[in-house]
Design a protein around this nucleic acid. Sequence first.
DNA 1: CTGAAAGCGCTTACAG
DNA 2: CTGAAAGCGCTTACAG
Lengths: 353, 353
Amino acid sequence: MTEHADPATMPYRPRATLRDVAAMAGVSMKTVSRVVNGENGVTPQKVDAVRQAISRLDYRPNLSASALRRSSGRTAAIGTVLEDLANPFSSALLRAVEDVANEKRVLILAGSVDEDQQRERALVRAFTERRVDGLIVAPVGEDQGYLRAEMEAGTPLVFVDRQPQGLLADCVLSDNESGARQAVHRLADVGHRRIAYLGDLALIPTAEQRFAGYQRALLERGLPLDPAHVVHDLHTVDDAARATTALLRGLGDGNGPTAIFASQNLVTIGAITALQDLGLEDSVALIGFDDFPLADLLKPRVSVIAQNPSEMGRVAAELLFQRLDGDRGRPQRILLPTTTVLRGSGEIPPAVP
Amino acid sequence: MTEHADPATMPYRPRATLRDVAAMAGVSMKTVSRVVNGENGVTPQKVDAVRQAISRLDYRPNLSASALRRSSGRTAAIGTVLEDLANPFSSALLRAVEDVANEKRVLILAGSVDEDQQRERALVRAFTERRVDGLIVAPVGEDQGYLRAEMEAGTPLVFVDRQPQGLLADCVLSDNESGARQAVHRLADVGHRRIAYLGDLALIPTAEQRFAGYQRALLERGLPLDPAHVVHDLHTVDDAARATTALLRGLGDGNGPTAIFASQNLVTIGAITALQDLGLEDSVALIGFDDFPLADLLKPRVSVIAQNPSEMGRVAAELLFQRLDGDRGRPQRILLPTTTVLRGSGEIPPAVP
DNA sequence: CTGAAAGCGCTTACAG
DNA sequence: CTGAAAGCGCTTACAG
């Protein structure tokens, strides 16, 4: 039977310090410090006495205090600034960072920016004021120059997902343009000539790159870019669904798109919703950028250009730790390939006119 | 045109301290401290001088140092121990915690335990050694008694998702038993008498409670509990798919289940996969515990008992901050209701024999 | 309104 | 093998 302490009546017991442990064990603070840090050169008897005192006092070393004094100044924590901890992309990335950090016994401070540059700056500042050893940032602002002071102070910095502006630093990105280009080529391969582009906010660099890939593929295929088939600034499932419905109204007149390239997760899902509502999911081809869970349980199964957020996180974290280990080589720009996953929706041919 | 500093050649510039700022501004450290902390009673001229020095030196106050000295000892950071930062349940919960913490200008340290008690303890210890102001923990171990020392030291602690063992503390849980019971009742409502249970590892408390709800509903409906229709210890999509396939082989002999209650996300998805493979998705009813994205885009749409991880995180964080604000009332056990979302798969009637 | 001294909990740099 | 003194970057508790 375990004792149940009642927090309502339980008096707080102040945390024991290294000094308390030293007093109880009858040794100096320095000796306790040696035991806590696993340094050798302490007689077994003293080690025992210290261990006992630690256990009886529930002593927990104060890592902030030790970091303050230590010459390295390392806090064994890194900060991760991401778009939204709740979205699958950010959370897969974060988890991969955690796995790398965990091996090094480093902790993660994490925060969401929600496409808000003020948040980006506030988080970076808050992390910096806690003296994190390094920073992984998915930048949203138009200018990351404000981070130069941190880099100059020796805090390594790796950007993910989007390239930083106004600052030369390591970054790990998906090859957005190439992925988008592949998508359009696959659609053209099965005979489509009127391929719509449904995209996120045009000023987001990744959206811009995907649109560039779309345009390039059209050019390479000798297909016209029809402005009526291009919709930007879609940011929610509902936006995308409405845009898809509007786009497909033109289907009857022989000028509507016969295929859709959706440049982002939520846009893809909105497009699917609309296609299902219109009963067109088996007649209009669709390839989305970004994989998502259950894409292969839908009917038709959804073809996608898959990114690898987990790999992005892993590579970024490893680069960061390399910098922490003293690598001062030139900033790297690592482009991660995308994977074309054809599951069905992208292989639907255009209806014979 | 922005200057691009090159990290390879850029010499590190040691971080300025409060002392440096004081020297440059020609005031005492105490005056700088007053300005940094927004205390009044400093002449505008000195405020200006200090601000200028701060800006020229890119001074960032060291919050660890100030927390060390401050009487409150607050670090303005809380630790969050979750099952897996990459899964939708954990990440929605984390995000909600972040939103509450953000209002209080408090940062989040987060880590995944992956159903491993050693990880749980290691994370708690790492957070404690950094003197987080509070802890939110989704416990996996069989005994959380080891946390008593932290509570006694005055670190508030709120458990989420699962009840702690061997320790009386605040917790926020879904009403798992009631939710599971609802699911079985809904299936019985449309005429099912042979309802299978597909469950996660039986020793996980939440799985146990969901199984209890299943059993209770069968009793209430006067339905027999057929051991052949109960499968425990399913932990992956593949496990669940195999179990479902095995279960449904008996369909032909009139003794197989006509409906399935899947007690967890991945199990539900595995069941759907198997049903689709067998072409039975429109003939066998299915209700899953836990909602998931795109459940309403599948065919048939998937009925679920939805939890609210976001609400769970919000409530837990608010409880934690209440404790931090000095509330020393008795530990609370908050039960969050589940929502029955009937979308189609749960309303499929049994085939007429 | 301002600042000099002491101290938070640790480690460093010594000396023995 | 062990420990006393100084100091990391800040705030506290004073005194003026």
